[in-house]
Structures are given as structure tokens and as C-alpha cells.
Design a protein around this nucleic acid. Structure first.
Lengths: 173, 173
DNA sequence: CGGTGTTGGTTGTCGATACAAGTAATCGCG
DNA sequence: CGCGATTACTTGTATCGACAACCAACACCG
């Protein structure tokens, strides 16, 4: 066996262990608050927010999957549950009859509007308020550098635009 | 309803979206490589590494759960599977007969020794090699600050010591 | 010593995701 | 056209983790 492995230095190991801990704990914290206060997972929240911000509140399933960093089967299952709860609607895409469009309903809009303040508060309390402005910029750069490795083609890369002020239901038609 | 929500600024939103994407994509990438090359999840790998580094290769279940950022039921299920595969052994703790000790077996040591180079390579390729030394230090500080919020009591907080050189099977008795 | 509360761990059930397979529509190309 | 390849999505199966309920052992206290 080739023993040319470059083992981790003390600094590398320390940073890596903390990053792993963060990726283990953060999703659970986000899900816990949203499930408790709005009966949706963080993934469902992000998906609904993406639809709310889209033109006509509508997106193709594939586009929504990329936007939410999800596989298509996963999104398909989630969409069925959201549709059963009346939060979204699905219908065949007129232009490409293979495709499916998803639209967030008024009930869905109300739900995310109600959930947004609590979620933003959770994000602030658990993450943003712990960082200085310099660290916020550093986090942006670091996460960007890592994402370039994890998702080289940038097929997923969700763009920001999610937390603007006021109820989404008033912004979109 | 109180409308005193402090919505996210553009910079905050951008950094947050990237952090969320990172926490969604990184675990999958780690699991994919380890499952493909060593038939274990990243969580199982971390648990086995913790046992390998412990005195007598042995830890109490509660201590191992804290070390791996896991709940006790989760660890219990994982431990049963690892025991079925002969990678660990469990036996009652002599000093406290409520407690259970877990020990990594020789087969378990061989497995992580074989898996370590590929895993380290994955960590380097996906994360560490994308960062400058300054960013490594920044990541350490940022993750530390966030973990203080996510785990205030520091009951979980795994300590680093996992990626030193040479086969673990030669280091521990 | 009993009794109450707490700690340590396991088990059962349910929900959610990954993966593979399947279906339907579109595209490309002779 | 017409046939294979690709795209878009859904469905089925198996696995994994969360949560709650449970049991056993210790701890403290009168």
C-alpha cells in the first residue's frame, strides 16, 4: 500500500472536527424550532421560500431541487406531502409535458410568513449573532471555497434572496 | 404580533445560504466515499476512531455519544449493527452496572486503518485544500463561536486527536 | 432499609431519505 | 418520420434516525 497519505496537522484536525460537529448539530437545531413552531422541516421551509420568491410563485421540480440542494426523488416525496397538506399545488408544465410545475398556495404563503420571524430569530441566535462582521465575510468566503469543491458544476448553488422584509404574501402576486 | 423582527441583511443572507448548502452537501459527500470504500457511514467511522483513541480502546456508551454528537438511542442502534459486524464488542461496566462499555475489536481497528487514507484524502480534496492557512484558523474560530451557541454546556464538543500518523492498531494496545 | 427521583441504556414505532427501477415525453439523427 | 438516447419525474424498497416508552441500577433521604 502506498503510504504517502498526508495526515492532518493539529490545526487542520481541530478545525475539521469543529466543522463536522457544526454540520451535525445545526440541521437538528433548525428542524427542531421549525417543527415545533410551524410543523415543517427546514428543508420544507427553504423549498416553500424558493417558490414564494419565484415568478408566479411557480418553479419546475428540477429547478426547485437544484435550488434546495436536493435530489429529485427526495423533492418528489416532500412535494407530495406538502401537496397533501394544501401548501403547494402541482400541475403538468404546458411547454414540456414531461415536466411538473409546483406552485405555493395562499395557505403555504401564510405559513411561511408566520414561520419566518421565529426562524430568523433562530438563525440569529444560533449563528449570526455569534459572529463579527469580519467573520461573516470570512464565512461567506470559506463556505464558497468549499462549495466549489463539493459542487464543482454549481448545479445546486442556491442564490440568496430569502429573508427580505415584510410578508412574502404581499410581495408576490 | 410584534413586528420587531430583525430581518437579514444582504451579507447575512448570502453567508447563511452558503452555510446551509454546506451542511446539506458535506455529510453526503463524506458518507458516499466511506460507504463506497469501507462500507461504513461517516458517523460509524468517527465512533470507531473515538474508541480506537480511547484508553483500552474502550468507552462508556454515554461518553461515546457525547464524543460523536449523537443521541443515546441513535448510538445504541449503531452499536448493535457494528457489534453484529464484529467491529466492536459491548459488555456491562463493572463499576456501574447500569452502564455499558464498548470496545473496538481488532477487525474494527483494521477497518479504520484501511479506511483512513481514503477518508483523509476526501477531507483534503473537499475542504482543507480549498482553504488558506488563514481561512483554516478563521474556520476554527467561526465554528467554535457557533458551537458555543448550539451546544452551550459543551456536553458534546468532541476534542480533536483523530488523524495522527500511522496505523491506529499499532498505537493502542 | 423502603421509597422517590435520577441516570444509563435498550427497544419499538414511525417518518424521512437514498437508491434503483420504472414511466412518459422530448430530442437527435439518419 | 422512426428509433435510440436523454430528460423529467414518480414510485417502491430498504435503511437510518428521532422520539417515546420502557427497564434496570444507583443515589439520596428520612
Amino acid at each position: 500500500m502506498t503510504e504517502d497519505t498526508r495526515w492532518l496537522s493539529t490545526e487542520e484536525s481541530a478545525a475539521w472536527v469543529r466543522l463536522v460537529a457544526l454540520t451535525e448539530l445545526l440541521p437538528g437545531a433548525l428542524d427542531a424550532q421549525l417543527l415545533r413552531d410551524a410543523q415543517i422541516t427546514h428543508f420544507e421551509y427553504v423549498a416553500l421560500m424558493a417558490l414564494a420568491a419565484a415568478p408566479d410563485r411557480t418553479m419546475r421540480m428540477t429547478a426547485l431541487a437544484a435550488r434546495t440542494n436536493a435530489t429529485l426523488p427526495r423533492l418528489s416525496h416532500v412535494a407530495r406531502r406538502l401537496e397533501d397538506r394544501g401548501l403547494i399545488r402541482r400541475f403538468p408544465c404546458p411547454e414540456d409535458r414531461r415536466a411538473t410545475n409546483a406552485t405555493i398556495t395562499d395557505a403555504g404563503m401564510r405559513l411561511i410568513d408566520d414561520a419566518a420571524p421565529g426562524h430568523v430569530e433562530t438563525v440569529r441566535r444560533n449563528v449570526l449573532d455569534a459572529l463579527t462582521p469580519e467573520q461573516l465575510q470570512q464565512l461567506y468566503d470559506i463556505a464558497g471555497a468549499v462549495l466549489t469543491r463539493l459542487d464543482p458544476d454549481e448545479r445546486l448553488t442556491a442564490t440568496a434572496c430569502q429573508f427580505s422584509e415584510g410578508p412574502a404574501i404581499a410581495r408576490a402576486g
